[in-house]
Design a protein around this nucleic acid. Structure first.
Lengths: 242, 242
DNA sequence: GCCGTCAGAATGTGATCACGTTTAATCCGG
DNA sequence: CCGGATTAAACGTGATCACATTCTGACGGC
């Protein structure tokens, strides 16, 4: 029981305080931090589908009162990450075959064109982004070699969102975040089932190359292939109900 | 001031109780009803962009305590309908040119293919849907003749969502709802500015025809054209800041 | 007439409590 | 050893309160 508690604590790890907190002016709202930590944990697949969450439980985990936990839960439920059962209980959203198909279609419809917008950034910013992406991708490759599926999921999401955030398209970004919040938990299950060995041929190198070349079409194609490859892995590792 | 109060009351009108409440088993949560009414008001453009909302104000409007109002606000903010200012105040999201471009792109990327799924429904359900759509479209035409831009926006949203809900694609539907929550308020401003006279050539008839024919491609094309036409109207009526 | 000041009203946020429901555990009879 | 009933714990939800911050508008000096 103490072990499980420790696992939970790491899943909801606080953001790295050593990095610069780029908003020194205003202290962040408590419910906002709860939301962000929970969101990261879900996107990077640290919470398995069907995992029950409770207002009081979350509040205790984060050392806050019930109110911020409630707000974070409602926000994530609105984005499709959490399900509210008919009896009003809260759990990480489960996956179905139909939902998986929809998520795949929607990701292909949105993410490539979102990524494509990143090439419109000024060359200096583009180069900086490429450097950041390479850095993340290196960490990702190391995670694969290590067989660390948790870090893989983490760096994979960081890679994509570093690219997407650079596109400067907040509406698109919000939609895509919702999609990742719905795929994240299930993705992790699949990776844990298949292992990281089958993931060493992602298209991230092509993404960076196309970004450096300023070739929007190639960038979109690379992202599209990356998504399709990742989703086909999911299908390979799929089993119902979970 | 009493007049303004009355206007607000109509904007947040309660759903028609005479219609069947299709879930007699469990009483809906209070915050859920607040959310639904607010959501409808926003999608159908009854709240102008920049309109300030407050927890206590909303709670008073709906005759509830602050808590359900807070939850509804947070949910809608998570969907992009409401903005939270740097000082943590809440207002209906404003429009910018960049956001408008994004919304247009995203709608074109999602809504046609969502609508296209509706043709996969069994013929009987498709025919019933076509009948419903025709009914809504008639009311819509009458609203146009009347020059009633409020009813126009209402029936237009009802037309689209009747179609989209029939597609049976909840993930897509959630994304599209988010887009409408962001376009709704601004749409209404534009319609009010242009009048309804410029809106009598929508593609709804083609939509219904394609649905009846079971022609997914034509259906998608008709929806695409309807979106483009509606969005071009917005561009025509656009002026910054609002 | 304009702008800065300042007091009062309004607001977001977090905490806590109460109530009815739901889930989990316990116990008991077979 | 098992299954159903009963009791206890946990939960979601709504209400209310306190506090710090922010907005509003009136007032007064320039």
């Amino acid at each position: 029981m103490a072990l499980k508690k420790a696992m939970i604590m790491t899943a909801f790890a606080a953001p790295d305080k050593s990095s610069l907190d780029n908003n020194p002016s205003r202290p962040a709202a408590v419910h906002e931090e709860v939301y962000q930590r929970l969101r990261r944990a879900i996107i990077s697949g640290q919470l398995e589908p069907g995992r029950a969450l409770s207002v009081r439980g979350l509040a205790a985990e984060f050392g806050v009162s019930a109110m911020p936990a409630r707000e974070a839960i409602r926000q994530l439920a609105a984005q499709g990450a959490l399900e509210i059962t008919p009896t009003r209980r809260v759990a990480v959203a489960r996956m179905t075959q139909e939902k998986l198909d929809e998520l795949c279609d929607a990701r292909l419809a949105l993410e490539p064109s979102l990524a494509g917008r990143a090439v419109k950034a000024p060359p200096a910013a583009r180069e900086a982004l490429a450097a950041t992406l390479t850095e993340i991708d290196d960490a990702l490759d190391q995670a694969i070699e290590r067989g660390d599926s948790a870090d893989y999921a983490k760096y994979n999401s960081e890679f994509h969102f570093a690219l997407y955030e650079a596109a400067g398209a907040p509406v698109y970004l919000g939609l895509v975040e919702s999609l990742w919040l719905q795929t994240g938990p299930f993705m992790r299950v699949v990776i844990g089932r298949l292992g990281t060995s089958s993931l060493d041929d992602d298209k991230h190198k092509e993404v960076v190359a196309a970004l450096r070349a300023g070739d929007a079409e190639k960038l979109e194609a690379a992202v599209r292939e990356d998504i399709m490859q990742g989703m086909s892995n999911i299908v390979r590792g799929y089993s119902p109900d979970v």
